[in-house]
Amino acid sequence: MCDVLIVDEDLAARQHVRGLLSAGEYQHLRVTEADSAARALPLVRQHHPFAVLYDPSVSDADGLEFGRRVKEHDPLIHVIVASQLKMFDLLYQAINQGFDGYLLKPVNREELYQVFGRLIQNDIRHSIHGGANRALVARQESEADLGNPIESAIAYIEEHFHEPISLQEVAERVYLSPSYFSRLFKSEVGTTFIDYLTQYRIQKSKMLLRVTSLPIEIIANNTGFSNSSYFSTTFKRIVGRTPSEYRAMMSALKDRSHAERTQENKTDHE
């Protein structure tokens, strides 16, 4: 699982950003690194991170093409460009592609935190206002690719996970019978359609529990669960803790880590 994916050929640059995130208020975010677009795309498809931060100069990223592919796969993933080039053209193109941030390298802590804070606040506003705004975040709905029905089904889940979704509805969308679609989905993905949908929703809910103080009822509603009771039961079955317990645990870990760093800094200055 990962919340932030850093894509950069420069190991030192990746570790620099990881260090900035692990040493502050975003330390609870799980960070994964990749040194190429080829290695990054499977991670994007598998984990659906909150944000992808990448350098467009990565040799196989084709400039902004990699970010565009991430957005096509899941429009709710935030794409942030990190570049040594202070070029207006690059910034302008990134904005036109629907990217969510532009940072100059070496990445500055204050600017990185500012971007993450803005993105999280935007997500909170979308969550509070419910499904209508979530639909706007997803923007244009992907057309079904009948040659790749399972990929189309997964894309549909990513765009509509906050809404009621049935196996029959998605099977009809890709022109397959529910029984055949069900078998094909499990064969290609390795899990059932319902389990994949539920896991995806739980992953989105865990992010909201970690980075927001939204009520459990709102998080349940905005991640596709019919009510908070069913959400809590499902969450505990999969995660091993209730949503409230998970939030408390993550908050305690954050506070403990902050206290340890404070003590280390105090010791260093003595």
Results as ranks from 00 to 15, higher is better:
2 C>Y: 01
12 A>G: 03
17 V>P: 13
20 L>I: 15
24 G>M: 07
26 Y>T: 03
28 H>I: 05
32 T>F: 08
34 A>F: 01
42 P>L: 12
54 Y>C: 05
58 V>K: 08
59 S>H: 13
61 A>S: 11
63 G>A: 14
66 F>P: 00
66 F>L: 03
68 R>Q: 07
72 E>N: 02
75 P>K: 06
76 L>R: 15
77 I>K: 07
84 Q>H: 10
95 I>C: 12
95 I>M: 14
95 I>L: 15
96 N>E: 14
98 G>Q: 02
99 F>R: 11
103 L>K: 12
110 E>V: 12
111 E>V: 05
117 G>I: 11
122 N>T: 05
127 S>C: 13
129 H>W: 05
130 G>E: 02
131 G>W: 09
133 N>C: 13
134 R>G: 10
134 R>M: 12
136 L>P: 03
146 L>Q: 08
150 I>F: 08
158 E>A: 14
159 E>K: 15
160 H>Q: 11
164 P>F: 12
166 S>V: 04
167 L>S: 04
172 E>C: 03
173 R>W: 14
178 P>S: 11
184 L>F: 09
189 V>A: 00
190 G>R: 08
196 Y>V: 08
198 T>G: 04
200 Y>T: 13
206 K>Y: 02
210 R>A: 06
215 P>M: 04
217 E>F: 01
221 N>R: 15
221 N>G: 15
222 N>A: 06
233 T>S: 15
235 F>G: 06
242 T>F: 01
245 E>V: 04
255 D>W: 04
256 R>V: 12
261 R>P: 00
264 E>A: 12
267 T>K: 03
